[in-house]
Each structure stands twice: as C-alpha cells, then as structure tokens.
Simulated scan of single mutants.
Amino acid sequence: MNLTIRNIEPQDDQTMGEIVQNSLENRGLAISGTAYFDPYLFHLSEVYKAKKSDYWVLEKNGKIIGGGGFGPFGRYKKIGELQKLYILDEEQGNGYAHMLMKQIIETAKQDYEELYIETFKSLNTANQLYLKYGFVSLSQPLEGSEHGACDTWLLKKLSK
C-alpha cells in the first residue's frame, strides 16, 4: 500500500469538496451553517495558499481518501482553526485521521498558540479523536464563528 500526505493542489479541489459534502450528507448534516455550504469548498487549494494556513490531502494508492487543514480564526491572532478534516467513510477506522491530525498540529504550532474547532455532538468518533489530541470542550463558540449550526466547540493549547 502506498500512502502519502501532501499539500492540496488545484486538481484535488473537486474530490475534496465531494468528500466533505458526502460525509456531511451521510450524517444528516447537509444543512445551512455547516461546511457543506461554504462558498469556497471546491476551491480549497486557493484558500489554503493564505498565510498561516495549510491543507493536506491523504492519498492511498493514488486515490485521495481524505484531507484536513488549518487556517486563521476570526480576528484572533494566536488562535488557528482546525478545518475540514474528513476521511472517506469506507476508509475510516484505519488511523488515517491520526496521520492528518499530527501533521496539522505540528504545522499549526508554528503560527498559533491554540487550535479551535467547531463540530457536532453527534459526531462521536471525530470528537473522541479531538479529545485524544488534547482538545477541551467550550461552553459556547468563540466570537467570529462562521458555522452557526455547530453545537460543539473545542480548543487545544499548542506547545512549541
């Protein structure tokens, strides 16, 4: 098996947009206020060229099976946001999200002191992953949230 993590490229945009949308549809979360309707969802390679941002895709035997990244959050200078960490349903449970999470955390700590994520209580497996990596629950979203439908907010302190 050939497994590669690499930076997203323009030819990956369509595939990653579909992975995000399919994942949300399969969980009944294709609703307003989620990543499903982000206007830039099918242009991630452009979005993550910005400073203090990065996005990776995970390729297995030449096929993209997931991705994840981070970027700035709102007006906060020292808080980044974990963004669009998705793995194809049929590839989940193989440790691939851990590979991406490690890449995201290691790189994000170069630009940020904390990492924030907005998610849903119903996404038990994802939430267990976040907690395993030291994210702690918040009682409300940080100011500047773009995903108003989310009902779970987590924050992790990053150490250099």
Rank of each mutant, 00 (worst) to 15 (best):
E114R: 08
E91N: 12
L100D: 02
I105K: 05
M99N: 09
L82Y: 12
T107C: 07
Q103V: 13
M101H: 06
I104M: 08
K102N: 11
T107H: 08
E90K: 13
E114Y: 15
K84V: 11
Y112T: 00
E90T: 11
Q110S: 08
E114T: 05
Q110M: 05
E113M: 05
T107S: 10
E114N: 07
I117Y: 05
I105L: 12
L100N: 01
E106F: 06
G80Q: 04
A97H: 01
D111I: 03
M99Q: 11
Y96Q: 08
D89K: 14
L115D: 03
Y96C: 11
E91M: 14
H98V: 13
N94Y: 15
Q92L: 11
G95A: 03
K102T: 09
G93E: 13
K84R: 15
A108F: 07
E118W: 06
M99A: 08
Q103K: 14
T107W: 02
I87Q: 02
Q83A: 10
I104A: 10
L115F: 09
K84L: 14
E91C: 13
H98Q: 10
Q83G: 10
E106P: 00
K84Y: 10
E91T: 08
Q103G: 09
D111Q: 07
T107G: 04
Y86K: 05
L115E: 03
L82F: 14
T107P: 00
I104P: 04
T107D: 13
K84N: 13
Y112N: 00
G95I: 11
L88I: 10
G93K: 12
Y86D: 10
M101E: 04
E114I: 00
G80K: 10
E91L: 09
A97K: 02
H98S: 13
L88E: 12
M101N: 06
H98P: 01
T107V: 07
E90V: 08
E81K: 13
K84M: 10
E118P: 03
Q92P: 05
K84E: 11
H98T: 13
M99E: 12
K84S: 14
G95H: 05
M99I: 14
G80N: 06
A108R: 06
Y116F: 14
G93S: 02
Q110W: 00
Q92S: 01
E81I: 10
I117C: 13
K109F: 05
G95T: 06
E114V: 00
E106Q: 08
G95N: 06
E106N: 11
E113C: 07
I87R: 01
Q103E: 14
Q110H: 09
N94I: 15
L115A: 04
Y96V: 13
G80C: 03
Y112L: 00
D111W: 14
G95D: 05
E81T: 02
K109S: 01
Y86C: 11
H98M: 11
Q83C: 09
